[in-house]
């Protein structure tokens, strides 16, 4: 897809930064204690320009814990706060796509989750293009990612090329009066590939998944780190008398055994193997059936962060290439 682009000399980056700050507080990748995190910054000098953030940015649309409504007696009062506008700066294409994927589930279908819409509307997504993979875990070029952003920066040495992806982005960039230019760049070529040909065939083939069964700790780290894992729990909190309190939505994980518990102590995915497979199949197949595209962006976080380094991509490749 060809998108309009403009040239910004790097030494004038401050003008863009000011324009972004006029939208809202700027959250950008910052290296701290060896980890790259998304943090609020005041000065462009704080930005770390290499690497992919350890955590995804999903919490900016879907906080770990979010009030749905408060109640007092039988009176309920809907959550109706106005989140402060934020610029998420320096998102990689995988994470930009994650927003689009989460939108499919939470924004484009009815009933909407009211808080998701509010948080989403108050975000400006500014990408940072990957010329090379950020590390050996990235496999985004196997995942058919699309240009989804408000603005996206391409590093051209002394200049940035900035593409506009939405009217929201255009409005910000217009303030800068930049020179238009033509520039296209392919996404990084990753060494890690995911071969999903005929993947359905391998679901029932438990041989492939043995390592997942043996090494998985059901710790849920993969689901916490994944930018599109947003399964949730609904929980009530109240004072001791139960007269007032709130109902909250909270991140949950399909890797936990109790995720499918029903009365009679029956677990529908009581086996570790079933949970491990379920997550991957939701990412690669079930979501595709529902929305026409994969739920995985190839960001590699679930492998990068797994305490036992279960590389499900290579497990699948082994299956799909052994014919």
């Amino acid at each position: 897809m060809h998108k309009k682009g403009f040239c910004l000399p790097k030494k004038e980056f401050g003008t863009l930064f000011t324009a972004l700050q006029s939208f809202g507080e700027v959250i950008a990748p910052v290296k701290k204690d060896k980890f790259l995190r998304m943090e609020k910054i005041e000065n462009p000098k704080e930005i770390t320009w290499e690497g992919i953030s350890w955590f995804s940015s999903k919490k900016y649309v879907f906080p770990e814990k979010q009030t749905l409504f408060k109640f007092k007696g039988e009176k309920t009062e809907k959550w109706n706060e106005n989140p402060s506008p934020k610029v998420l700066f320096g998102l990689r294409l995988c994470d930009l796509n994650a927003f689009a994927i989460n939108d499919k589930l939470f924004l484009n279908q009815k009933p909407k989750l009211p808080f998701y819409k509010k948080f989403r509307e108050n975000l400006l997504l500014v990408g940072l293009w990957c010329d090379t993979p950020q590390d050996e875990y990235c496999f985004c070029d196997s995942m058919k990612l699309q240009h989804k952003y408000d603005l996206c920066l391409f590093d051209r040495g002394d200049n940035f090329h900035i593409k506009i992806g939405s009217p929201k982005g255009e409005k910000i960039l217009k303030k800068l009066k930049l020179k238009a230019e033509d520039y296209e760049k392919e996404l990084a070529k990753c060494e890690k590939k995911l071969n999903t040909t005929d993947i359905k065939k391998y679901f029932e083939n438990n041989e492939i998944w043995k390592k997942g069964e043996k090494d998985c700790l059901s710790c849920g780290t993969c689901t916490i780190l994944c930018p599109t894992c947003l399964c949730f729990d609904i929980e009530d909190e109240s004072n001791l008398k139960g007269t007032c309190g709130k109902r909250c939505v909270q991140w949950d994980s399909c890797m936990y055994k109790d995720f499918t518990l029903v009365s009679g102590k029956h677990h529908f995915r009581g086996e570790r193997l079933d949970r491990f497979k379920h997550r991957i199949f939701h990412k690669l197949d079930y979501f595709k059936e529902q929305f026409g595209e994969s739920m995985c962006t190839g960001c590699g976080r679930c492998i990068r962060g797994c305490p036992t380094k279960i590389d499900w991509v290579s497990l699948i490749n082994k299956g799909t290439s052994d014919k």
Partner: peptide, 19 residues
């Protein structure tokens, strides 16, 4: 079918049976 249900509107993922 009976499953653990939270949202009842196809969002929370608890009740998924395959896809």
């Amino acid at each position: 079918e009976e499953r653990q249900m939270k949202c009842a509107v196809g969002r929370c993922g608890h009740c998924m049976i395959k896809g």
